[in-house]
Design a protein around this nucleic acid. Sequence first.
DNA 1: ATAGGGTTAG
Length: 614
Amino acid sequence: MVPSPDTVLWNTLLAGLSGSEALESFVWMVSVGSVRPDATTLASVLPAAAEVADVTMGRCVHAFAEKGGLAEHEHVLTGLISLYAKCGDVKSARRLFDMMERPDLVAYNALISGFSVNGMVGSSVDLFNELMTLGLRPNSSTLVALIPVYSPFGNELLAQCLHGFVLKSGFTANSPVSTAITTLYCRLNDMESARNAFDAMPEKTMESWNAMISGYAQNGLTEMAVALFEKMLALNVRPNPITISSTLSACAQLGALSLGKWVHRVITEEDLEPNVYVMTALIDMYSKCGSISEARSIFNSMDNKNVVSWNAMIAGYGLHGQGPEALKLYKDMLDAHLLPTSATFLSVLYACSHGGLVEEGRKVFRSMTDDYAIIPGIEHCTCMVDLLGRAGQLKEAFELISEFPKSAVGPGVWGALLGACMVHKDSDLAKLASQKLFELDPGNSGYYVLLSNLHTSKKQYSEAAVVRQEAKSRKLVKTPGYTLIEIGEKSHVFMAGDRAHPQSEAIYSYLEKLTAKMIEAGYRPETEAALYDVEEEEKEHMVKVHSEKLAIAFGLLSTASGTEIRIIKNLRVCLDCHNATKFISKVTQRLIVVRDASRFHHFRDGVCSCGDYW
DNA sequence: ATAGGGTTAG
């Protein structure tokens, strides 16, 4: 069919438009009726429908193509494949691909990309292999489409191909390629190479900023993520919802409330409140930075919550030891006809465990498999052991382990059992659990410390010494503890026995006075008893003032009376510090909020919200 | 005709 000059004119017009504008013009072209769209017309309308994810419009174009005998055309088919795949209808995409006599590279790329965006790793790689077998040469589009599903443990051919490709185009100015390479390095945890690829781009796009910021956030380089976000704003690049969600995730991990509040102001300035990702990340940030009530009011203000928003809020209550609130929210969620996910159950079980809600936790655990057919994972099982352990039902916890799926029984589950043995001082079961742990997780020194402390607290000094000796002979090193406190907008970090802080003198002398008052109120420091039969070197380590006490003392010194103290620790709170903090909250009448490695403690008037189980 | 970035749980 020879196209009329009018058709060529229309096609030129359509090629210059995108998204909904192109679609509107196409509808207009058809309704005018004086010219016939040809294959070129359809091939430029289909990406427009894909761009706005309008599968209905896409189906109309498809039907139109079949009626006009254009549906066999290679370019039309490729456009349809891409459209259906992007709209999640991978089956239709595959069916059309299979209809093609000899699919070319572009068609392969369209379907590979379709599999990738739908998370179908295996199908993506299979199609890549097929393409290589046929002797087609992959181009940059092929590899950009494959990077989202690439795993270092996957296909060797793909790995070689990607490697060669990255070497060749490491300093390309092509932004989708550079962004994909940045993402690839982030996923391989090679942040230096990721940053090099990012820095080499002369013109940064929104996608590339976001790839780098989210890469930092996901790799725990939270300060870097925040710094890059600040740099972006300083260059007058406006953040979009994706930028904000990633940055908030970094603030949440960092526990930096003042930074988080600043990002909140940016959200307001940019009118990003309607975005679910942004608001869910905001809930998480407030909850992880200690402001659970602020998190709830954000949650209440949202009118388009999804499962993740609910999960984040439930997890927040669990983190803050508010078990009943978490359960109530879970029930509200079911009433709102949302389908709970595996993460929902984890959050609920976690909340039950930290709130001592044993019976409720049992019910939820059963309901997960019985009503929702979700197989319990490692974390669910760990929570259950923790839950029963807290209630002192060690035997039941031990027996339950044998009923767990094999895949779920590892260091996590045995570690939880050991933790429960610690609290309830069951050294026989503790020995059994540690034996499993030494086998399963030989590099971890934490279990040796726990077991040794348990023996010490039961005055089984020679057994404690044997455990410590064993740890020492394996050259296991403890992770150094540190505590962070924000005063105003500035962060201060303390290590155990730290004297590096400019106000060190004042802090130590204040701590001394404070300790005297605490002792008067009934505080007994863990001293001689705990240190009996401890080697000299070890003793010195234990006598050093823990970072937590230094941070709290500094906080008390630096803020007006009545101000809430908020600190963040990298390890779990030790028994003595926990006890001491209770007394500090009593004698100073301050609310002290401590975020440790796994949860929040709210100390008020001598009592901790965790109920002394953590 | 095909190509890049996001929230919870761990």
